[in-house]
Computed example of a mutant assay.
Amino acid sequence: MLETVLTCLIGWLLLAASSFRIRRDLGLTKGDARWLRVAGVMVLTAGLWRCGAPITGERWVRFLGAAGIAGVATVLILSAAPLPRLRRR
């Protein structure tokens, strides 16, 4: 399950990097964002197919659990950068 969480975390980070604000901060173009989205979806799909369960409802439950954990971790990672700036004031 840990590898599914890490795979989903990478997928969510790729999808987050294709958002407007982060893309602008990274200096990427709209075409680059499309490839980031495609890569993010492919990584999430790989996480679904490699989550360590046979093709049943258990696979979906494991994938959704791992994607949820990775989603929370992604939000925490992306919101951690403003904290040091706020503490300096």
Rank of each mutant, 00 (worst) to 15 (best):
S79E: 12
G57D: 10
P54I: 06
A80F: 10
S18P: 00
G47C: 02
T45I: 12
V38E: 05
L64T: 13
A16R: 09
V5P: 01
V75I: 15
A67W: 01
T4H: 00
G52Y: 10
I69A: 14
R59G: 02
A70N: 01
L26A: 12
I77S: 06
A81V: 11
V43R: 01
L26R: 04
V61A: 14
L44T: 01
A67L: 07
R85K: 12
R88N: 12
A73L: 15
L64Q: 06
G31I: 06
M42R: 03
T74M: 12
L36H: 00
A46K: 04
A81E: 12
R85F: 14
L48D: 03
L86F: 14
T56A: 13
I55P: 04
V38H: 08
L76G: 13
C8A: 15
A33K: 04
I10T: 14
A67I: 02
L86M: 13
I69G: 00
A17H: 02
G47I: 00
R88Y: 08
A39C: 04
R21N: 11
A46Q: 04
R21V: 13
A33M: 05
L78T: 07
L26T: 02
R23H: 05
R87D: 05
I55M: 11
L64H: 04
R88I: 10
L28K: 07
L13T: 12
R89H: 13
L78W: 05
V38D: 04
L6V: 09
G65Q: 02
R85G: 15
R37T: 13
A70I: 02
A39N: 05
T45D: 03
M1N: 05
V61Y: 10
A33N: 00
W49K: 03
G11L: 03
I10D: 00
P84S: 11
L76C: 11
L76H: 01
T45G: 14
L26D: 02
I77W: 10
I77C: 08
G31S: 14
V41P: 01
W35F: 15
M1P: 01
R21G: 09
A16T: 10
I69L: 15
A16Q: 09
L28V: 14
L86W: 15
E3T: 14
V43I: 13
L2N: 07
R85E: 11
L44N: 06
R89D: 09
V75P: 00
T29N: 09
W12I: 08
R34E: 12
M42A: 15
L78C: 04
G68P: 00
T45C: 13
W49E: 06
W60D: 03
R59T: 05
L48V: 08
R62E: 07
L36N: 01
P82W: 06
I77K: 00
M1Q: 07
A80L: 09
R89L: 13
A81D: 08
L83H: 08
R87A: 15
P54Q: 07
I10F: 13
V5R: 04
A46R: 05
V72A: 15
L6Q: 06
F63V: 00
V43M: 06
L64A: 15
G47D: 00
G52T: 09
V61E: 08
